[in-house]
Design a protein around this nucleic acid. Structure first.
Lengths: 346, 346
DNA sequence: AAACTAACTGTAAACGTTTACAGCATTATT
DNA sequence: AATAATGCTGTAAACGTTTACAGTTAGTTT
């Protein structure tokens, strides 16, 4: 059963296909009368233009691609939701690609996006390796990085300043009277969210006149279970710790649960501050004090930037799409998992 | 900058575009020699076929649409992840549409999917109203329902049997010695997840010889905050309750937190069982005992079914796509939020 | 009344593919 | 030796749009 085409509409309305096309795209070249006839025909036949054909001749697919590790992870889910809303505000669509941080999947998807003639792509939360950069470059469309950056390639990016955010978190703990501060970090090989946070922790401690001690940091993989394990390890290495900065909310909640199983009460005996402000952080018991990354906004803004670049590229017909990193604001969300030692001592 | 096309490849390899096309689609009509020349040319020119043009002539977009309330909700995120994996296993792509349970958005998206020539659509977790059904029907492609059903329209669906699942949950509580069992339900106007679960609760209670009491059920909206509020309301109406079935995990975790704030210990003084087995249910404290819906599998299977139907429709050239509801298995995940009264009494 | 303009309309070419069809060697069959 | 079959190739039409261009009509200016 063939779908209704522009030809059918033209015949039905007794005009040429050019006129129909003009009406659809409401060009000023169509007369009132023609418009009326055509609109009527469209309604009666239930016509809907074929985006494939449109895209082919206009060279516009109205589609962008999003490369993201895993939408089922609450962190990415939130970021993606922001992206999606921005995409639809711009009357466009999005192909989503879960890469699982797998090289082959990533490369396959990039190829795929090319075939689909996407007009831009968002690359989320992974390190931009040389191989990835080349694949992206060959796409020949604007690329925006979200929750990651790649200064060496000069790609535009939207993220929070991790170093600064962690630094603020540590200062907050110190302001609350803590000086024996531990950390549960992501892996240091992770150049995006691992290393910079670790360094933020280390430098800020030193800046505040607190000696840095390697024993006070333990590593995890950002997930719940690893937080549960890590807190035990940390506390067994140094039971004197009164507060710990944890590199992700999920892992932080793991630490709370882990501490609880050890009979340690949060925040009375141990303060915990997380990172991300993912929705589950309000649901933990006690509710998690954390660094808000405005994930939704990060996604939204990344896509907005992408559309600006697409617009710009179209005008200038330039091939190269460079840009700086835009740092979006972060802030501390005070909930229940950090106690104020100073107040307590008064 | 024009992209490399099949013509460029043909010229470069000194063959006709038909031959190039044959090689790309590895048709047996291409000779070994031609294949070699063409492949070489493709590699050197970095050619990638244009999916828009392909789709136009072959009338295949290799794309399906997913209508889903909100991917940033962990429930849907998990379901969607299953869908996405199934889609990519079938060498296809997916347009995702967050409807926010908003009628206008839904209708707009359906129109949209039609323009994009999707070959099938997944409709998730909402009631199929007459208006929606008609919009979907006009798409003229197979539709599969996931986490919802619509017997009156005979649409194929994949979901768990809510009534049975709730019934099992109640029996489980009874088996653990509870007889004063409350419920935090979704709204009864919700024909998909509200009413059936409420009825499962009511009937099973009666079946087990426990009188049903309207006072023992309180309503929420499945979200955390409403669970927190609801448990207070429930307990104030009837402090004798020893266990409560809560219609979603998020709301159940809210109840745990709410109870805790009231100084009531879960599960020692109050048992709570949830519904969904969303990833955060392992992260609550105590970890939540719940009914597993295999969300990932639900999404995966829904998409698999959709592809089968697309295949079938292509062969039979039939317009109508009817089907039964496939109930996928559910099971009780025993964690820490339900206590066994019988064991305790021994 | 001729020439020009304005406001619209239709024809046809393009977009980048797939594929039916016809054609041409080459080999196999009579 | 003529015919048939096989294996491959290229030409051209189609897919459903957009849009440059030429054409038509009616109204305005001279």
């Amino acid at each position: 059963m063939r779908k209704t085409t522009i030809k059918d509409v033209a015949k039905y309305a007794n005009v040429s296909i050019a006129t129909v096309s003009r009406v659809i795209n409401n060009s000023p070249l169509a007369s009132k009368e023609a418009k009326k006839k055509v609109l009527q025909a469209i309604r009666e036949l239930g016509y809907e233009p074929n985006a494939l054909a449109r895209g082919l001749v206009s060279r516009k697919s109205n589609t962008i691609g999003v490369l993201i590790p895993d939408v089922s992870n609450p962190f990415f889910a939130k970021v993606f939701r922001g992206m999606e809303d921005a995409v639809h505000k711009n009357n466009s669509n999005v192909f989503i690609c879960n890469t699982d941080k797998d090289k082959e999947r990533m490369l396959r998807y990039i190829k795929f996006l090319r075939e689909k003639q996407v007009e831009g792509v968002i690359f989320t939360s992974e390190e931009v390796t040389k191989e990835y950069y080349e694949a992206l470059y060959s796409l020949n469309v604007p690329v925006v990085l979200v929750a990651t950056e790649a200064k060496e390639y000069n790609l535009p990016a939207v993220k929070v300043n991790d170093y600064q955010a962690v630094s603020d978190a540590i200062k907050y703990l110190v302001d609350n009277g803590h000086s024996n501060i531990g950390m549960i970090s992501g892996p240091l090989e992770d150049k995006i969210a691992g290393l910079p946070r670790y360094e933020g922790y280390k430098s800020t401690l030193m800046e505040m006149g607190i000696p840095f001690n390697e024993e006070n940091v333990v590593f995890g993989d950002y997930r719940f279970e690893s937080g549960k394990k890590a807190i035990k390890e940390l506390l067994s290495k140094n039971p004197e710790i009164t507060a710990v900065f944890v590199s992700s909310d999920e892992m932080a909640i793991g630490s709370i649960v882990g501490a609880c199983k050890m009979g340690i009460e949060v925040p009375k005996e141990l303060s915990i501050i997380g990172y991300d402000n993912v929705s589950i952080s309000e649901m933990s018991n006690p509710a998690l004090t954390t660094i808000d990354q405005s994930l939704y906004q990060m996604g939204y803004q990344g896509v907005e930037l992408l559309f600006e670049m697409i617009e710009k590229q179209k005008k200038e017909d330039s091939r190269i799409c460079k840009g700086d990193t835009i740092y979006i604001p972060h802030r501390i969300i005070e909930r229940e998992s950090v106690s104020n030692l100073i107040q307590l001592n008064i």
